[in-house]
């Protein structure tokens, strides 16, 4: 087990290095930062001085090493716009995004799994078919447009929920979140739903497909032949088996939810890292873009690692294969 985690950690480290190279190359490709940093009518001498001050006269690999060493110290430069350290800026916006992402994930699991189970157990019933049709719809619905429609219906026409912004936050157990205030919930509901709908469809489909495939397997039939109640057959024998792909996908999708928060945050003016990156791209606030990328990559790697470990905990066959290798 620990060998497995160690090896995955090593892989993650390599991946992280590769990603820093890509990010560095990307930043380098965006253009010459000098042109933005100093005024166009600076003299050649001023220009040269700035180049040297920023280390841009060094060979590329040395520049990369400098970039890397600064990265390790958490120094990614200051935001041009906010005049704040870029990393601090990103971290200050991160909680809002995480709150949104977890709320969305929770919604899609809590609603998606029961619906998927139902559709899988009764594929030919009216409810089963409607659930499937709904999931196709959920898949096809463009995320941003669906968000607009949520605003249109619930904020503009019905005026039930606010159209944007994050509500007041409260502190509970050291976590500062809008989940702990009633108004915060009101603000969170629409964006979370917007972000959740696609994943919900995915969870429904995965659950349904898993149930249908598993129900045909001999061990399910054998479980019934043993005289187990159908509740036990479904919730232990079937469910535990579909849990494996489900956990894997849900875990991996958490990253994509955080990425897709870009759209949701833009629509609902949610002050998270997604809105920050879009704003920064518009004004070419490079340090913030880099900081965002590094943070996102780190998060992805962490999520993948956790999912892998969870997967091995859930599936005894993986554990064994690992012990052998």
């Amino acid at each position: 087990m620990s060998v497995f985690i160690l090896r995955r950690l090593m892989q993650s480290l390599v991946l992280l290095c590769v990603m820093t190279i890509i990010v560095f190359a990307g930043v380098y490709a965006i253009g010459n930062p000098i042109d933005i940093l100093i005024s166009p009518d600076a003299t050649q001498a001023e220009y040269d001085r700035a180049v040297r001050a920023l280390g841009l006269d060094l060979p590329l690999w040395q520049q990369y090493l400098v970039f890397l060493s600064k990265l390790v110290q958490g120094d990614l430069g200051k935001s041009f716009v906010f005049n704040e350290p870029a990393l601090t800026l990103v971290f200050s916006r991160l909680p809002a995004t995480l709150e949104l992402a977890f709320a969305a994930m929770l919604l899609s699991i809590v609603i998606g799994i029961p619906l998927g189970l139902w559709a899988g157990l009764r594929p030919d019933s009216v409810a089963g078919r409607s659930i499937m049709a709904g999931s196709i719809f959920g898949f096809s619905l463009p995320n941003f447009w669906q968000g607009l429609m949520l605003i249109m219906v619930f904020s503009v026409f019905l005026q039930w929920l606010p159209a944007g912004g994050r509500g007041p936050t409260a502190n509970f157990l050291g976590i500062n979140s809008s989940l702990f205030t009633a108004e915060g919930w009101q603000h969170l509901l629409l964006p979370a739903l917007n972000l959740a709908l696609f994943k919900m469809s995915l969870v429904i489909r995965l659950t349904r497909a898993g149930v249908r495939e598993t129900l045909l397997l001999d061990y399910v039939k054998f479980a019934r032949a043993k005289g187990l109640s159908s509740r036990r057959v479904i919730f232990v024998h079937v469910f535990k088996n579909i849990l494996i792909p489900l956990v894997t996908v849900i875990g991996l999708e958490l990253g994509s939810v955080i990425a897709f928060a870009v759209v949701t945050e833009t629509i609902f003016a949610w002050p998270g890292i997604g809105k920050l990156i879009i704003d920064s791209i518009f004004v070419l606030d490079r340090p913030v873009i880099v900081a965002y990328l590094i943070v996102i990559v780190l998060m992805f790697i962490t999520i993948n690692l956790i999912v892998d470990i969870l997967y091995s905990v859930l599936d005894p066959r993986v554990r064994l294969a690992d012990m052998k290798s």
Binding site: G26, A29, I30, G255, V262, I281, N304
Partner: peptide, 14 residues
């Protein structure tokens, strides 16, 4: 391992 929207976002930013 990275969602499409993220990759596209970065590319277009560049």
């Amino acid at each position: 391992s990275f969602p499409a929207i993220l990759v596209a976002l970065i590319l277009l930013a560049i």
